[in-house]
Each structure stands twice: as C-alpha cells, then as structure tokens.
C-alpha cells in the first residue's frame, strides 16, 4: 500500500487548490491511492468533491499543487497519460441512439483498442456489468440501472490504473446497485485503484479501504472506517429500557469500567462506552440491580455519525 506516499501510488495529489472567481472550491487537498485500493471521497454538496475529481481526471488545471497519475503529471495538457484513467461521470456519458456495443466500441477505439483486442474487451466488460444479452439494443431502450452499468463498463474497457466512480449508483434499482458494487469489489481485487464518491454511507463502508471526508475545500479527516471513528472519539451507545430507580442505576453504571457517560432517555438510560461488547455484561449487571430491564440495545458509531461530527451536516445534505 502507498499510504505513506511510496512510489507505487497510482494517484498522488499534493496540496491542490482551485478557485472560480472569488469562490475557493478546493483549498489544499492532498491524497494518495495505492493499486488495489478503493478510496472513498465523501463530502456534502459544495464541499469540493467534483472540483477535486475534475483535477485528478485532468479536466481542470489546479491553481497550485500537483496531480500525478502513475508517476506522471496529470492535467488538461497531458493527453497520453489519460489512457491510464477510467472516468465514470455522475451524469450518464453515453450516446442513447447507439447500441450498447456501439458505445463501447467507440470509447474503446478512442482508448486505442483495436480489432480482436477491442472485441474481446467489449465482450468482457459486458459480462462484468451483466449486459451481454442487451448489447445489441439501443441505449435509449435501457433501464436507468442498465445505463449506469454500461456507463461503468465504458470506463473499464482499457483496464485503467485508476477508475474514478462519481456517484455511480444514483437512481438505480437495488439489483443494479448490488451488481455495480460487486463489480467494483472485483476490480479492486484485480489491482485497480478506485476513487469512489457516494452519498450512500453503506456503500462507502462496504467498498472503501480508506475514506477521506472533504468539506470547505479541504480533507477534514482521512483513514480507514475504524480510524475515522476513533479519530473523532465517537463511543458505542448501550440503551436500556426498564422500570425502577433510574438515579440509583445511573450512579451504579458510572462506576462500571469503560462507561464514560450515562444519560436518561425516555423511560430508560443510555450509556456511552468505548467498547460496548467488552463491557456489556458488567453494564447489564449494574443496571439490573436497580431496574427491571425490558430491552437492551447496542448502537455502534458509523460513518454517518463521523461525517456529522466533522461537517455538521448529513451526508445527503
């Protein structure tokens, strides 16, 4: 892995900035992605995700800072290196009047694939996204999910070193979404670096080896899921419903090792604890001494809570 900035990193983004007039969209973003790594870039709308992706994809020139793909400079003027990039834009980038296979033939040809190699790659990616049997149909006859899958296939044709997936599952049915996520997992397993943006936290938790949370044009935090949760100090929550002496139960729970806070909620109590499964037995024992418990529930912090903690916004804002 290249988390420390080794020469094996597929992408190296170093302190890039970009402004549009008075608006500074990106105020110094740095990130690295290693081969086989899936990096999730999460942020609320207007956080600078799209501008960052545009600079990584070579569509925009940074005002300052550098972007390197496979060790070579990346930007609007660097044409050849783009053959190592596969971009799956958020908006569908397909010709609806062309057939599925014709779309792929066209994009493959522009990626310098020819003849048998092109045909083989087209067949292969059609299988990967599950559209082999609809390849001869015009794209305008596809469902939304099928278009999304073909959109991804077009980015995979040339086996890019980096695949950028910008919210690839927006508006797709659960079946297509699952197919897309499985495809991404398979690609990552084959050694492809993936930069993934999404508004669905469960996708990020399932797919991403590391996650960067971006807001106000800066990466506010970066790491694995557990690292991020630990970083922001989020605690497990143990909720206990029951009847009895809540005050005495609170006093008893505050003596249990690991319990950092006890709050009354509704007719029960909620304990904030560092590692709930480890301390659960002691917590229930202490509470049972003063309460007749009717329900116990553990809630572990997730990325949604981390995101809210870091940005003050819901991910879907």
């Amino acid at each position: 892995m290249g988390q420390d900035g080794t020469s094996t990193d597929v992408v190296q983004v170093q302190d890039v900035t970009r402004s549009f007039g008075d608006l500074q969209a990106v105020a110094g973003v740095s990130l690295r992605i290693a081969p086989g790594e899936t990096y999730g870039l999460l942020g609320p709308n207007g956080a600078g995700k799209t501008t960052t992706i545009s600079m990584i994809a070579g569509l925009l020139e940074p005002d300052s800072g550098t972007v390197q793909l496979c060790g070579e400079p990346m930007g609007p003027r660097h044409t050849k290196i783009r053959s190592r990039l596969g971009l799956v834009p958020q908006d569908l980038a397909l010709y609806p009047d062309l057939k599925g296979r014709e779309n792929l033939n066209y994009f493959g040809a522009l990626q310098n694939l020819r003849g048998k190699e092109l045909r083989a790659r087209v067949d292969e990616v059609l299988e990967v996204v599950g559209l082999a049997d609809r390849a001869k149909d015009p794209v305008k006859e596809y469902s939304g999910g099928m278009k999304r899958r073909l959109n991804i296939a077009a980015g995979l044709l040339h086996r890019p070193a980096l695949l950028i997936l910008d919210e690839p599952t927006v508006g797709v049915d659960p079946q297509s979404r699952n197919a897309i996520l499985e495809s991404v997992e398979a690609l990552s397993g084959e050694g492809m670096a993936v930069l993934y943006t999404t508004h669905y936290m469960e996708e990020a938790e399932r797919l991403c080896d590391r996650i960067g949370i971006i807001d106000s044009g800066r990466v506010q935090a970066e790491g694995t899921r557990d690292e991020l949760i630990h970083l922001v100090g989020e605690l497990d929550q143990v909720r206990m419903d029951g009847t009895g002496d809540l005050t005495a139960a609170t006093d008893a729970l505050q003596q249990v090792p690991g319990v950092q806070r006890v709050d009354p909620v509704g007719g029960g109590l909620v304990c904030a604890v560092a590692d709930a499964p480890v301390h659960l037995a002691a917590i229930v024992t202490a509470a049972s001494a003063h309460l007749e418990l009717s329900d116990v529930e553990i809630t572990r912090p997730d990325l949604e809570q981390v995101f809210l903690h870091l940005t003050g916004k819901e991910l879907r804002d």
């Binding site: 609007p76 044409t79 053959s83 980038a93 010709y95 994009f107 522009l110 990626q111 310098n112």
Partner: peptide, 15 residues
C-alpha cells in the same frame, strides 16, 4: 448536455 463531452475529455484525445 448528453454528458459525453466529459468522458471524451478524460480520454487520451486532444481537445
């Protein structure tokens, strides 16, 4: 408007 210009510009093709 079809979104394909972004894809074309991300390919090894000069603007």
């Amino acid at each position: 408007e079809e979104g394909t210009l972004v894809r074309l510009r991300s390919m090894p093709v000069r603007s």
